[in-house]
């Protein structure tokens, strides 16, 4: 099979939401090209997170398609083909909701490696922890024993574990102070620089997007891109 042409992570005419009579997103087209950071802004309730979940392959649209480097995605959530799922990483606003509070940070970062039976897991976790600057002491703490900033670093490590080609960051820094925000955005940029990954950066903070994204698109309250 020839290598896929890198045309990006693309939403095409996506209609999505929670009630088919009142979709949140109305025929949205959006492309996240490899190596680029696309900012997505818009008021709360406009559907930013819904679009994040569709592009993260976690929520099936009512109609329209998501293309991953030219290949249409055929299933969402657990129906996503494994090869496609591992190419997209998603980070959310509230790290507490994404990690079982009883897991140690080490166990949380290991999860995707275990699930994919990756080789050299301990080494890989050490590498990832180093990358996001988590000390061994923090790795052995449970999620409920660390701060939001520390937990979000662990979530970033876990998301990078399978080296995704695209990252969807949904209000990833909203809970965090300015310094942790700058640190995490810096880590994502470094990863992008090394791997050529494409990033969708969602935030209600216009100042942050102006600094972080290459281009920014706006979702209106009616769920269309402007």
């Amino acid at each position: 099979m020839p290598p896929p042409v890198l045309t990006g992570l693309r939403a095409e005419a996506v209609v999505a939401g929670y009630d088919p009579r009142r979709p949140v997103l109305d025929r949205v087209d959006l492309t996240v090209p490899p190596g680029r950071t696309v900012g997505l802004a818009g008021p709360s309730g406009s559907g930013k997170s819904t679009l994040a979940r569709v592009l993260g392959l976690l929520h099936a649209p009512f109609s329209g398609t998501v293309h991953l480097d030219g290949e249409p995605v055929t299933g969402y959530r657990h129906r996503t083909p494994h090869a496609q799922r591992v190419r997209i990483g998603v980070l959310f606003q509230q790290p507490r909701l994404s990690v079982d509070p009883r897991l140690t940070l080490r166990a949380a970062i290991t999860e995707p490696l275990l699930a994919t039976r990756a080789p050299r897991q301990a080494e890989r976790v050490a590498e990832l922890a180093d990358l996001v600057m988590l000390t061994p002491d923090l790795l052995s703490r449970r999620a409920h024993e660390v701060s939001d900033g520390q937990l979000q670093r662990a979530c970033l490590a876990r998301t990078l574990a399978l080296s995704p080609d695209y990252l969807v960051c949904d209000e990833m820094t909203t809970m965090l102070d300015a310094s942790t925000t700058a640190a995490l955005v810096g880590l994502i940029r470094d990863y992008q620089g090394r791997t050529g990954a494409g990033v969708l950066a969602i935030s209600h903070d216009a100042v942050l997007l102006r600094r972080w994204a290459d281009d920014t698109v706006h979702l209106t309250p009616d769920g269309v891109l402007a």
Binding site: A178, S179, V185, G186, D205, L208
Partner: peptide, 11 residues
């Protein structure tokens, strides 16, 4: 200095 409208560098 970490603010996005300033240097945007982490401590």
């Amino acid at each position: 200095d970490a603010l996005p409208d300033r240097a945007f560098t982490a401590v």
